[in-house]
């Protein structure tokens, strides 16, 4: 224990606490709370019933008030911890309330009505996860459909991104031809053309191609990403040209060289691009919002935002679906965090 804490709390030079050590730990602990806290809070909340969500002050864990069916009463009755006049505490069920007085019965002996002051009782609450928040939207709100749309867009767009951009990167890194530097220049120059600048004309192109209200209209404009070409090309430049010459001497066609030699050797860069593409496409919002106007075509992000913008927000469903939307990204984060962070540090890509 001592060793562990000394290791975790090791300080500059090992002598005493410097003020920077204190700042460091405040920053780290504060960061931990601020960065994870909100998401954790949301995840906890997603298991609460609508009633619990409306409570203030809120509880951290999802509680529900306990009820019991008592002989002689049709409806289930709510249970309370009740302080009895003799000072003991009993669990009683409330039959009805008149003013500040409450009529209660012991569920085990329902014959006798006990009157107690309202302030002498507190509801019995148990932790209970409202899993129907998760199951209901899939049945009633097409969320399964949205989930499928999101998965489709993400997977297809990522596959096309990998193929199309690796082909271009191959041409731009391993062939000498006229216009190569022009192509590179165009790609470099448009590295930063954001959707927000071209959304109006892009919409008209998508409509004239008949891709409005089609998942392909969401997919196609995103797949020829200059960033993708750029990082793949940088990586392919490190593959020795002699390897390609060797393959040519081995009677490989150019397509085979691409498919059997260059692509396998570019695997690390392809993996980085694939991860980023998955995160990008999964998270895309504005463009799907523009292209998709029919409910059954919504992606998760669009569906979530539309439902959360409705007048009568059903927070219990929204929170649960937010968690569902978050899960793949959190999984990617947990398993590939190191890979992603080194990828970003290496390429400045986001």
């Amino acid at each position: 224990m001592g060793v562990a804490s000394r290791f975790i709390l090791r300080r500059r030079g090992g002598k005493g606490w410097h003020w920077t050590d204190i700042v460091t730990w405040i920053w780290l602990i504060g960061g931990l709370i601020i960065m994870f806290g909100p998401a954790v809070w949301l995840a906890f909340s997603s298991f609460k019933t609508p009633a619990a969500l409306a409570e203030f002050p809120p509880s951290i864990l999802p509680y529900v008030t306990s009820q019991a069916t008592v002989e002689g009463y049709d409806k289930p009755l709510q249970l309370f911890d009740t302080k009895m006049p003799d000072g003991s505490t009993r669990v009683l069920a409330e039959v009805r309330r008149i003013g500040v007085m409450s009529q209660m019965v012991d569920p085990k002996a329902p014959g006798e009505i006990i009157r107690v002051n309202m302030n002498d009782r507190t509801p019995v609450r148990t932790v209970s996860f409202a899993t129907e928040n998760y199951t209901e939207p899939f049945v009633h709100f097409d969320f399964l459909r949205y989930l499928w749309n999101s998965v489709f867009v993400t997977v297809v767009a990522t596959l096309i991104t990998l193929v199309v951009n690796s082909m271009a990167a191959f041409a731009l890194s391993k062939y000498e031809f006229k216009g190569r530097s022009l192509a590179m220049l165009v790609i470099l120059a448009t590295l930063m053309v954001p959707l927000s600048v071209i959304m109006v004309p892009l919409y008209s192109i998508i409509s004239s191609l008949g891709l409005f209200n089609s998942l392909w209209g969401v997919i196609l404009p995103t797949v020829a990403t200059p960033t993708g070409v750029f990082i793949l090309r940088q990586y392919m430049l490190t593959i020795p040209d002699e390897l390609i010459d060797a393959a040519r001497m081995d009677k490989a066609s150019e397509w085979q060289i691409y498919w059997r030699i260059v692509l396998p050797l570019t695997a690390p860069a392809l993996a980085v691009l694939a991860i980023f593409s998955v995160v990008w496409r999964w998270n895309d919002f504005l463009w799907p919002l523009i292209v998709l106007s029919r409910r059954e075509l919504y992606t998760l992000q669009v569906g979530l935002s539309i439902y959360s913008g409705e007048l009568n927000v059903q927070w219990h469903f929204i929170l649960a679906m937010t968690v569902v939307t978050m899960v793949p990204v959190v999984l990617v984060f947990i398993f590939l965090q190191r890979f992603i962070t080194t990828g970003i540090a290496g390429t400045g890509l986001k």
Binding site: L42, N283, Q301, I318, T322, M326, F333, I340
Partner: peptide, 10 residues
């Protein structure tokens, strides 16, 4: 890595 929609909702 969180989607902007998720961030907004959180």
């Amino acid at each position: 890595l969180l989607s902007p929609v998720v961030v907004g909702l959180i």
